[in-house]
Design a protein around this nucleic acid. Structure first.
Length: 745
DNA sequence: TTCCTTGTCGCCCGG
DNA sequence: CGACAAGGAA
């Protein structure tokens, strides 16, 4: 017990050893939040106040859940595997699997990830003959998820306008589709679990009796439905059956756009009669100047609980600010600084490059690649979202549950087996007519091995062979262990040979093999190693794991993705109005404050050194934009900042002269509105000016058949040159120079 | 039916 | 700029 509590500061100790009462812990960045949470759990168990079974601990990310389990396992000699520690979605999923009948779900219900969900919506729009331009699938998806996150079914949403009525129609159709095919999206996991507990008193009481302590991580990120779910499990409006230990930081709430409701902190205070809020303000991460800068920034927000981070360490270095002319120059500057830091002994993995949006990583990656600096980009495409993996998973889904129309449509003609739009259309009509799944329709129509309609002739081979394939796989896989099932499926579906033939298929093949590895480790770790369990795992986990964990590499990610992490040095780039704060949030005070919290999160990731940079011009959407520096830089007191001057190096010559032309001076609040664009333009034209034969872009030509035109593009070399000609009358054509007999004009 | 070119759109994030 | 859908050609 003593060892458990030793080293805690007074506030941490108070939080860990609180008596049986609900509490709210306001835990600033780097204040030892996870330690408090896990030590609290270990303390409760070790002091005999509760058994491991009586604890429910909820986080938002799988990573946080894993870390929590690992830390508890390190403190106590217990098996954390069976404990109810996990994400909201993971825990709800667990309950729904255990009580699938009461929840009105088929035993083999499958989970839709965002990509799947979008595909379902697109399919639905096609069925309803709705134009995607008029009702973008993204918007419908957002509407449905948002409603569910507020705990609302289609019948519970009020519609006062035609647009909402239309959205509700989609919502309803979407629901019936999902239910018919046994599919559950992320938000549905929570909503259905919540409804299960509200409607089934016996079940609800069972869980209330069991969980005496409910602990919540990142409480500021909970949405309304999640809060209601927590409250329900803790006893609802009736006297509470459990106490809640909520840890959060209102200043780090950055998920309002996906439904997070910071008001939950105030509601918790009221609903659970919390008498005292414990603030953890001592920061063990950053040096003083960084904290002071972050504190000064966040002061500009209103309605905070209010808290000031402090450190017993010294001031450290000032925050470095760099004003670049172009995004290329910004990247070059970052590369130079990284090289210097690395030479001084800072590990690359201790350096993070943070940005507001994923699109910004490209320029950075380009420069890092040219400088031969190794880096890892987080976010973006995740393992289980890759095309080839999705295809493989679709086959697995069909093995488990052939009525899954969604999976069937994905692979019925992939790899191509001659089942085209016409066949599919017939199939869909058939299914609609008999109110059955596509699989059932296909089966009754041409399917069953014996009744294949051979007489229909040529292109009708595809469908029976597909049905045969799936059935053969189903039979073969009954007794195979999961990894072998996958291996069998990959071979017999033709996926392996298909990607083997593709030009850039090598990486896809590697990923497919990696899928077998993922299944192997899943079988070792999970209690339930069935195929359905693996499919759920794939949807819920996403698979952020990437190889090369050991390699020393720079860390590139968005600010959102950086939450909870820390680095020796942080580069925060693209600090421009419109980008950060983001253009969509600028005019809305709540949006702006969320941007500011995001900035606060970014700054507090740095332990020793923090760089802020912005650029006067930047390529965005394929166009050069000219933005002014972010207001957030101005919100940091001057004495904490150190403005860096560009060094006069070989490659900085060009942009210095441009600056002189524009009357530009480096320093605070001085930026040229149009400096820099010539630099980039000139470089581009110089690079591509090498083709100087008589065939040039812009050359007027004449063709025997197509008449006169102008060359607008070319491709290839030697005798294999093709030119693209825009003809005055015949449109644009690609022509082989050798045969086309063009005459220059 | 399939491949390839052209055109349009959108860009924050996690389960 | 890049992903992806729609439309045209083999």
């Amino acid at each position: 017990m003593i060892s458990l509590l030793s080293g805690l500061n007074p506030e941490q100790l108070e939080a860990v050893t609180l008596p049986y009462q609900s509490s709210l812990i306001l835990a600033g960045a780097g204040s030892g939040k996870t330690r408090v949470l896990t030590t609290r759990i270990a303390y409760l168990i070790q002091s005999g106040q509760v058994s491991p079974n009586g604890i429910l601990a909820v986080t938002f990310t799988n990573k946080a859940a894993r870390e929590m389990m690992a830390r508890i396992a390190a403190m106590l000699p217990i098996n954390t595997r069976g404990m109810w520690i996990g994400t909201f979605h993971g825990l709800c999923h667990r309950m729904l699997r255990a009580h699938y009948q009461d929840a009105g779900l088929p035993q083999t219900f499958l989970i839709l990830d965002i990509g799947d969900q979008q595909a379902v919506i697109k399919r639905l729009l096609k069925d309803l003959s709705v134009d995607e331009k008029v009702f973008p699938p993204r918007q419908i998806q957002w509407f449905i998820n948002h409603a569910k996150e507020e705990g609302l079914r289609a019948s519970q949403v009020e519609a006062h306008d035609n647009f909402t009525r239309r959205m509700l129609e989609f919502y309803r159709v979407y629901e019936t589709l999902c239910m018919r095919e046994g599919m559950v999206d992320f938000a549905e996991l929570l909503l259905r679990c919540y409804e299960l507990l509200t409607r089934n008193e016996i079940l609800c009481n069972h869980y209330r009796d069991r969980f005496r302590h409910i602990l919540v991580d990142e409480f500021q990120d909970t949405n309304r439905l999640q809060y209601r779910w927590l409250k329900l499990l803790a006893g609802g409006d009736a006297p509470k059956s459990a106490v809640v230990f909520a840890v959060g930081d209102d200043d780090q709430s950055i998920y309002a756009f996906r439904g997070a409701h910071t008001g939950n902190m105030q509601e918790l205070e009221y609903d659970f009669a919390i008498e005292k809020i414990i603030k953890l303000e001592q920061n063990y991460r950053s040096h003083g100047n960084i904290l002071e800068a972050a504190n000064a920034l966040i002061e500009h927000n209103r309605g905070r609980f209010g808290k000031n981070l402090w450190t017993s360490e010294g001031h450290g270095e000032p925050v470095r600010v760099y004003n670049a002319v172009t995004d290329f120059d910004e990247a070059a500057f970052i590369v130079d600084e990284i090289k210097a830091l690395h030479a001084e002994g800072v590990a690359l993995s201790e350096i993070a490059l943070l940005y507001r949006s994923n699109a910004q990583s490209r320029v950075l990656e380009h420069s890092l690649f040219n400088a031969s600096l190794s880096y890892r980009v987080y976010g973006g495409m995740r393992f289980f979202e890759r095309q080839e993996i999705k295809h493989a998973l679709a086959y697995l889904r069909l093995i488990a549950h052939p009525d899954d129309d969604h999976a069937l449509l994905r692979v019925i003609n992939f790899p191509p087996r001659g089942i085209g739009a016409r066949t599919l259309e017939q199939l869909q009509d058939e299914a609609k007519l008999h109110q059955t799944s596509l699989w059932a329709a296909a089966f009754s129509k041409g399917g069953g091995e014996t009744t294949a309609l051979v007489d229909e002739g040529r292109a009708k081979k595809g469908l029976p062979s597909f049905i045969n394939l799936i059935m053969t796989m189903q039979r073969a896989c009954v007794n195979l262990p999961l990894p072998e099932t996958i291996r069998y499926m990959l071979t017999h579906s033709g996926l392996l040979s298909h990607y083997g033939l593709e030009r850039d298929g090598a990486e896809r093949l590697e990923n497919l093999n990696e899928l077998i590895n993922a299944a192997t480790s899943f079988v070792h770790e999970a209690e339930d190693d069935s195929l359905v369990a693996f499919l759920s795992h794939a949807s819920l986990e996403g698979g952020e794991h990437q190889a090369d964990h050991h390699e020393d590499a720079l860390q590139l990610m968005t600010v959102h993705a950086a939450k909870g992490l820390e680095f020796h040095t942080v580069f925060l780039s693209g600090l421009e109005e419109g980008l950060f704060p983001h253009g969509n949030s600028r005019d809305d005070i709540n949006g702006l404050e969320e941007e500011r919290r995001l900035m606060y999160v970014a700054m507090t990731r740095a332990r020793r050194r923090l760089y802020l940079s912005f650029s006067q011009s930047r390529m965005l959407h394929g166009q050069t934009h000219y933005n002014i520096a972010s207001r957030f830089i101005n919100e940091i007191p001057d004495h904490l900042l150190k403005w860096l001057q560009p060094q006069s190096k070989v490659n900085s010559e060009s942009f210095q002269s441009v600056n002189e032309q524009a009357g530009f001076t480096f320093g605070r609040n001085a930026w040229g509105q149009s400096a820099g664009k010539e630099t980039v333009q000139e470089r581009v034209t110089a690079d591509s000016a090498e083709q100087s034969s008589r065939w040039r872009i812009g050359q007027n030509v004449s063709h025997a058949k197509f008449g006169t035109g102008v060359i607008i593009n070319y491709q290839g070399q030697g005798s294999d040159i093709r030119v693209q000609v825009q003809f005055n009358r015949a449109g644009t054509k690609w022509l082989l120079l050798e045969y086309a007999k063009l005459t220059p004009l």
